[in-house]
Simulated assay, not measured.
Amino acid sequence: MKAVSVVTIKKELQHRSSEELMELCLRLSKFKKENKELLTYLLFESHNESDYIKTVKQELDKQFESINTDSYFYIKKSVRKILRNIKKYARYSLKKETEVELLLYFCNRLKDFEPSIKWNVTLTNIYERQILNIKKIVATLHEDLQYDYNIELEELVD
């Protein structure tokens, strides 16, 4: 089965009643964990972005604490998984400020991580790539926010 375009879906949804829309949303939430997470964000957390960021940071802390530090191989796998989760959470929000906050937090945690990432080229590259991503995103934000985030970036780079 081939999926139709978003435009076609939007047109079809305009012809449905609110009860039918609710049924469709509930059915969607049963299929993928990401659909349920997105609905949870939209319904319960989108109105208070700072609480959402705080909750995600707590989740990231748990993930960092559970990293197996026996070898850099396991550390790399875990760091990539954490980064995937950050991207997913930022995609739910669609706010650049949220993405910057989460990536800055990730880089801070990674910089202070033991054993040090300086001894592994891959982890250092992941860190530097995220710094570049943050710089790109910050460049698109309002000047006041740019100033604040650039101060935090300078602290990370030093």
Rank of each mutant, 00 (worst) to 15 (best):
A3V: 13
V7W: 09
K10M: 11
K11Y: 09
L13I: 10
R16P: 00
R16Y: 03
R16D: 00
S18L: 15
E20K: 09
E20M: 07
E23C: 02
E23K: 11
R27C: 08
S29A: 14
S29H: 02
K30S: 12
K30C: 10
K30I: 03
F31T: 11
F31R: 12
K32T: 07
K32R: 14
K32Y: 08
N35F: 09
K36T: 08
E37A: 07
L39K: 03
L39M: 10
Y41K: 04
Y41L: 02
L42C: 07
L43K: 05
L43I: 12
L43C: 06
F44W: 09
S46K: 15
H47V: 13
H47D: 14
N48F: 09
N48S: 08
E49Y: 13
E49D: 09
D51M: 15
D51A: 11
I53C: 06
K54L: 15
K54W: 09
K54N: 15
T55A: 15
V56D: 05
K57R: 14
E59S: 15
E59K: 14
L60E: 03
L60P: 00
L60A: 04
L60T: 00
D61I: 10
K62D: 10
F64A: 01
E65L: 08
E65W: 01
N68E: 06
N68F: 04
N68V: 02
N68G: 01
D70G: 12
D70W: 04
D70E: 13
S71L: 05
S71K: 06
Y72Q: 06
Y72R: 03
Y74F: 14
Y74E: 12
I75C: 05
S78T: 03
V79R: 03
R80E: 11
R80G: 08
I82D: 01
R84Y: 09
R84L: 07
R84G: 08
K87H: 07
K87R: 13
K88R: 15
Y89D: 09
A90S: 11
R91I: 07
R91P: 01
Y92W: 06
S93I: 02
S93Y: 06
K95C: 04
K96H: 03
T98P: 05
T98W: 01
T98L: 00
L103T: 00
L104K: 01
L104S: 00
L104F: 02
Y105V: 04
F106S: 04
F106C: 01
N108S: 13
R109H: 02
L110C: 04
L110P: 04
L110I: 09
D112Y: 07
I117G: 03
N120M: 05
T122H: 10
T124P: 05
T124Q: 13
T124F: 08
I126D: 06
I126Y: 06
Y127M: 00
Y127I: 01
E128A: 12
R129T: 11
I131S: 04
N133W: 07
I134F: 07
K136E: 11
A139L: 11
H142G: 04
E143N: 06
Y147W: 11
Y147C: 11
D148A: 10
N150Q: 12
I151H: 02
I151E: 15
L153P: 01
L153K: 01
E154L: 09
E155L: 12
D158N: 15
